[in-house]
Simulated scan of single mutants.
Amino acid sequence: MAQVGLRLISKVINMKKLRKDHLIWCSEKLKQMKFVDRKIKMEYSILLFPC
C-alpha cells in the first residue's frame, strides 16, 4: 500500500496543472509514512487520491 501511495504522489507532483490542494494532499500522505528498519510504514486512510 505504501508503494501505491508513493506512486500516486509521484504522479500528482508530475501533473501539468498542479493545484495547491494537490500539494496539500501529497504533504498529508507523506506525513503518514514512516521509515523503520529500511521499510515504509504507513497509516492508512480512506482517501486514496486527491479530489
Rank of each mutant, 00 (worst) to 15 (best):
C51F: 11
N14D: 14
I46G: 01
I13E: 08
V36H: 06
C51Y: 11
M1W: 06
H22K: 03
S27R: 14
L30H: 06
M15Q: 14
K39N: 08
K31P: 00
G5L: 08
S45M: 02
V4S: 10
D37K: 09
D37M: 04
L8F: 11
S10V: 08
L8R: 10
Q32D: 11
L23H: 05
R19C: 07
F49D: 00
R38T: 09
K31H: 07
Q32C: 07
C51A: 09
E28G: 08
H22M: 11
C26A: 15
H22T: 06
K31Q: 09
R7W: 12
K11T: 12
K31Y: 01
L6A: 05
Q3I: 13
A2T: 08
K39T: 04
S10D: 13
L8E: 12
Q3H: 08
L48M: 06
C26V: 15
K20R: 13
K29L: 04
K39F: 01
L30W: 02
Y44D: 04
L23P: 00
V4M: 13
E43W: 01
R7M: 13
S10G: 02
L6G: 00
W25C: 09
K39E: 00
V12N: 03
I13V: 14
K11V: 09
I13L: 15
E28T: 11
A2Q: 04
L47Q: 11
V4R: 08
I40G: 02
Q32W: 01
I13S: 05
P50S: 01
S10Q: 12
F49M: 09
I9C: 14
C26R: 03
K39Q: 04
M33G: 05
C51I: 00
K41E: 05
R7D: 14
P50H: 02
M15H: 07
V36C: 07
L48P: 00
Y44I: 05
E28N: 15
S10Y: 13
V4G: 04
L8T: 12
K11D: 15
I24F: 12
L30M: 15
K16E: 14
Y44L: 13
L30R: 10
K34R: 11
R19V: 08
Y44K: 11
L48I: 09
K16R: 05
E28R: 15
W25E: 06
C26Y: 03
Q32Y: 03
K39A: 09
L47E: 07
F35L: 14
L30S: 09
I46P: 00
K20Y: 13
E28A: 15
S10M: 07
S27I: 04
K41P: 00
W25Y: 15
P50M: 03
D37S: 13
K31W: 01
R7H: 10
F49V: 12
K39I: 03
S27M: 10
V4W: 06
S10L: 11
M33K: 05
C26P: 06
I46Q: 06
S10R: 09
